[in-house]
Design a protein around this nucleic acid. Sequence first.
DNA 1: TTCTGATGCCGGAACGTTCCGGCAAAGGTT
DNA 2: AACCTTTGCCGGAACGTTCCGGCATCAGAA
Lengths: 327, 327
Amino acid sequence: MRGVQTDEPVTILTVAKEAGVSKTTASDALRGSGRVSEATRAAVAQVAERLGYVPNGSARHLRRASTGTIGLHVPEVLTRSSYYMSFVFGVVEQAARHDYDVTLITSGQRRPRPPRVDGLVLGDPLGGDPVVESLMATGLPTVSCERFPGDRQADGVVWSEHAEMLARLLGHLRSAGAARPALIVAGDESDWAASLHRGYLGWCADQGVVPLVRRVSFDATGDEIRAAARDLLRSEPLDALVCAPAGAATEVAPLLREAGGDVLLASCVDSAATRLADPPITAIDLRPREAGASCAELLFELLAGAARAGTERVHPIELAVRASTSR
Amino acid sequence: MRGVQTDEPVTILTVAKEAGVSKTTASDALRGSGRVSEATRAAVAQVAERLGYVPNGSARHLRRASTGTIGLHVPEVLTRSSYYMSFVFGVVEQAARHDYDVTLITSGQRRPRPPRVDGLVLGDPLGGDPVVESLMATGLPTVSCERFPGDRQADGVVWSEHAEMLARLLGHLRSAGAARPALIVAGDESDWAASLHRGYLGWCADQGVVPLVRRVSFDATGDEIRAAARDLLRSEPLDALVCAPAGAATEVAPLLREAGGDVLLASCVDSAATRLADPPITAIDLRPREAGASCAELLFELLAGAARAGTERVHPIELAVRASTSR
DNA sequence: TTCTGATGCCGGAACGTTCCGGCAAAGGTT
DNA sequence: AACCTTTGCCGGAACGTTCCGGCATCAGAA
């Protein structure tokens, strides 16, 4: 059995002819538009099903002046992080549900003009990123995951309560015996890092704790992060350390272990690496796949006019407490 | 500045009119088809550039009876593995280079009929996977990464010399003092695991070593893999362990450490987790991103007729020797 | 009966591109 | 000079869909 019939494509004209109606009626019946009797609609639908009719996307998009595609941008620098990978999958999955394709836009390739897409999803837009700036300037409907750290915001924003969750994490550390948890966090070019920093300072102020922060660059290497951790270990008697950047916690874990001292360790980004570390590392699960899906969903609502520009949505995140933060 | 001109789309007719030629000539000039003088070609190209002309993909695909999209399938069970994520990015990147979009096909969603794509890339097709079977039956040009463990093969195959590389790894372990390296590997539903198993047995036969293998399921959990490792530790005095499944090595590392015994450890799949483990774990770098790109490239050559069905290509992989395999 | 409006269906145009066939002019060959 | 070939360009058709406007038919109201 060779499988499907590859001989000739079945178009709406084939369906119409077979059902004994005009192409207009066939189209209306299948689309639910126009005026068609229930009997005809059912008959056409059945014929379409039987023939295995699949509408030609190109023709539809040409007629409709849409592309059937959304663009997705994630910061190039962290492309390899599993967070963004999951995020991408979430977007793709949700887009597929709406019969949309996704075109990946990387910072790497120069982008002289707006891409042929109906809308854009920006994952963690960085302030000052020229590609993001140019995408925001296209005027296309846009949804960003986390706020854009600039003057102008995207038409839709999906964000999470990072500051609040960090406060919960810090509270957990304190109840586990840490008097003064330290923080390693990136600069304010991403709204996520900025929120964490702000949340940390706020918690410290509330609790009467003297802040202990080291800042690293957004695309910090393992060496840079270890240097920051070593610096913390040198300067103070450290009892707990929260690492914001993805992968940072696993990178400093060996350092803390060999330093002895029983330092509690937590990460602001959960991943397979933190889950499988020895001991497993307490982390904030950002649920990236669901975040991606949520961004895509909001974009489609914007495109359909079901949501209006300026809509913001909170994406719930979770705290996964593990062995690394118990004595 | 509001950015680009969103007023009215610039089509090939706009360009033609502006350049003072017909749409046919404009199209020929830009596409490089037909007969156009060099002077005209340059003039049209310049006008197109100036007006920021971007050809309408839908119209082109409609005319050309192509979709401008390729489908990509990866096993659902390991979607979260960073190997597949990198693989996907490799495919997307290469596709973008050819002005193609990529639609992700997951095993999850039921797929009643062939998707509207020009061709398919199958990452690690599993024998018996119904989705893979149905995709292979569509008759669409298909490239698989690793052979399909069934009767019929894809039109193009990109594969790596896993058996040979494993032999090299085993040789390295032996020269590091291991007399009888053990192997934890999945069953033969994937060609990759089957090759490793075969390669291991071959090496053992060559070297006069008695094989020591434990098999696990393809989507083995951490528990299943740890159970296999514990079983090995119990049965024999273990001096070296090679873990085939992605992530398996990092899962058994703590076990080996607490067992003492100084067991050498290596993984058949490199990842951030193995690189960052403590100590870093020797692993085979499958270069997934490049593998994805290679699959996509082969598919495009098949589509263009530049490669013929049945083409096979070897994708080079590398051995990364790290601290986990030295005494 | 005739008018009105709703209902069910349809023909044709349009979306922007590519490509087939054709036509005039220029150049080359007998 | 008559003929053929090449070159450069063009008009029109086609891809498959959606949608605007129109045309019957029929039921109910006048």
